[in-house]
Amino acid sequence: MDVLNVITLLGNFLIVPGLTYGSQLALGALGVTLVYGVLRFSNFAHGETMAFGAMITILVTWLLQASEISIQPLPTALLAMPVGIAVTVLFTLGMDRLVYRYHRERKASPVIFLIVSIGVMFFMGGLIRFIIGPGDQIFFDGTRFILKAREFKETTGLNEGLSLKMTQAVTIVTAIVIVALLFWFLNHTRTGKSMRAYSDNENLALLSGINPNKVVLITWVLVAALATVAGTLYGLDKSFKPFVYMQLLLPIFASAIVGGVGNPLGAIAGGYIIAFSELILTFAYKRVVLYLAPEGTEIDSLVQFLGTDYKIAVSFIILVIVLIIRPTGLFRGKTL
């Protein structure tokens, strides 16, 4: 009984949230890794691209809500997301046309690109705050819980409850669908393969007649779509606040680098590794210990490795360790 309670406790506070947060990081890291693999720079504007995509989705969601269009029990935001993706794709392509293309034609070094992307990041951050404001935006609607903790307790008779929020289920399912589509595209379509070829060996790709402009275009389209989905899912699950997306940049880059930057499989693995590390290290194990310890044991502390305030430090530490021990990441990244 105690063991079942412990499993439920961990499931509720570690596994479900870890899978959710991990999926969000994985989608974000995939975008970073695609830019790195094809365009060969670290895109610091990716967090803001996520925020931008989420913002457009929110605006469309409000519009839909005002005209009382919904897809109960699912959140309306899912219906608005395609529009968010479309607008973000256009915006991203515009940014490429206005900013990145100039440096690409001059064959600028990756460091220049990185700094340029920081400029884009600040610009987009300003634009987003200008349009939707710096505050918290709540746009979730639909059914809140698929599985309520209380119901779970009543049915199972356990002390601990397991709950599954709609946003968590939507996040995990959407991530699986998007990742499956992306991998199918990269591995089984001519265009996807040409992207991998370009990422693998630019010169040979040119010699084979692969059009670099088309590869760049497709890459930005995919990146914008991934960013919008990741940004929207994160906003649905937590809440939308522009500032948070800039903070997300660290765990997202950590995910991409831990897995091997440039490698999509690595980005996904990295996302879950970072998410679970953060949760495992900041979880308070007090109740777990109480279940397993002999009756009557008393514990004053929370039995926590790190306070939740240090969450962000976890990504940072993992990032540093990986860069020292295995800079190419788990999957030896470099190409798609």
Partner: peptide
């Protein structure tokens, strides 16, 4: 057709995919 001295295959792609890329045009 040209086979460069170095970096003349797509190392991360399968043999067959290399051939497919050769026929890209």
């Amino acid at each position: 057709g040209f086979v460069p001295q170095t970096h003349n295959v797509f190392t991360s792609m399968s043999v067959e995919e290399n051939l497919e890329m050769g026929a890209f045009i």
